[in-house]
């Protein structure tokens, strides 16, 4: 067991998979000599050579499109979009194409590619280095979407994504990159796509969350514990396909649910989780499902006061939990 940061876990996942399988390669902006702007591919150029560590022009649509084509031909590309805010040019290829190619070819083709991207804010990133983009992709059948929050999950899910035979969007919260540390096993392992995990057991109320707000929810849960409230925290980890059973199991146990995410609430992952609970666990609920999410504004602003006003922090989550417990 080694204690590593999230970005180190991601780097190790890719390094191990590239060493294990010669069909795996990385492509993206500055992934070569620079090693990626967050150093996810640090030293990869020396280790694997420029054939498998491809610095691309600044052109996200074709980073995705060329990765789709390489995946169709039998390779396993890992395409990096430097910031998720720059992911929109890839929508045509990822949502329009990659998601539909298996279906549209009646199963004759598949697209075993990974598209990695740092997302999320609370890093003074402003409108164009803070966005949460997950709902657009999680809406799309044919894609798989993961959003790990810990080094263990980041490494295990990225490895699972690289080995998966379908296109997987791997969203890495950039604030977790160097701020979150944790243990990862020395031996090879994967975290299966599609499984949530109870990160903290509790009996009074459930928090369903993912990404950076997992950590803020854990802080809020610790705070509530001092007030005599037992909070269960479920980390979705995979946003498509959702692990409905783990969510419902927690709801049946606590009967009160707070859905927490940084993305704004309307038509979001939280909307889907809330709908699933209403459909399948209505009779177990002792209170309405509540949400603590980003506000309905276009993106997270730059000024610290405005950023703080956006962000669902541990304090805001704790306040919502108290409201829910008192219901």
């Amino acid at each position: 067991m080694a204690v590593v940061t999230v970005i180190e876990a991601i780097r190790e996942a890719m390094r191990e998979e590239m060493a294990r399988d010669s069909s795996v390669f990385v492509m993206g902006e500055d992934v070569g000599r620079r090693g990626g702007v967050f150093l996810a591919t640090k030293d990869f150029l020396d280790e694997f050579g420029e054939q498998r560590v491809i610095d691309t022009p600044l052109a996200e649509a074709s980073i995705a499109g060329i990765a789709v084509g390489a995946a169709l031909s039998g390779l396993r590309p890992i395409a990096e979009v430097q910031f998720a805010d720059f992911i929109w040019p890839t929508v045509n290829q990822m949502i329009g194409e990659a998601a539909r190619i298996r279906y549209g070819s009646n199963g004759k083709l598949n697209v075993p590619m990974v598209l990695r991207s740092p997302y999320g804010g609370h890093v003074r990133g402003g409108l164009y280095h803070s966005q949460s983009v997950e709902s657009y992709f999680a809406h799309t059948p044919g894609l798989k979407v993961v959003a790990p929050a810990t080094p263990y999950d980041a490494k295990g899910l990225l490895k699972a994504a690289i080995r998966d035979d379908d296109p997987v969007i791997v969203l890495e919260h950039k604030r977790t990159y160097r701020s979150v540390r944790g243990e990862t096993p020395d031996e090879d392992y994967v975290v299966p796509i599609g499984l949530a995990e109870v990160k903290r057991e509790g009996t009074d109320v459930s928090v369903i969350t993912y990404g950076l707000t997992l950590h803020y929810s854990m802080q809020a849960a610790a705070e509530l514990e001092n007030e005599g409230v037992s909070v269960e925290v479920v980390d979705l980890r995979t946003l498509r396909p959702l692990d409905t059973e783990t969510v419902l199991e927690s709801v049946r146990k606590t009967s009160k649910v707070l859905v927490v995410h940084e993305d704004n609430a309307a038509v979001s992952v939280g909307s889907e989780v809330s709908a699933l609970i209403a459909e399948h666990a209505f009779e177990y609920l002792d209170a309405p499902v509540m949400r603590c999410a980003g506000p309905e504004i276009p993106a997270m602003p730059f000024a610290p006061t405005l950023e703080a006003a956006y962000m669902p922090t541990a304090e805001k989550i704790a306040a919502k939990l108290r409201e829910l417990v008192a219901y």
Partner: peptide, 16 residues
Amino acid sequence: THVPQAVGWALGAKMR
């Protein structure tokens, strides 16, 4: 959309 995909296929062929 198939033009970058074709280029990706050519990249794959060259890499192999």
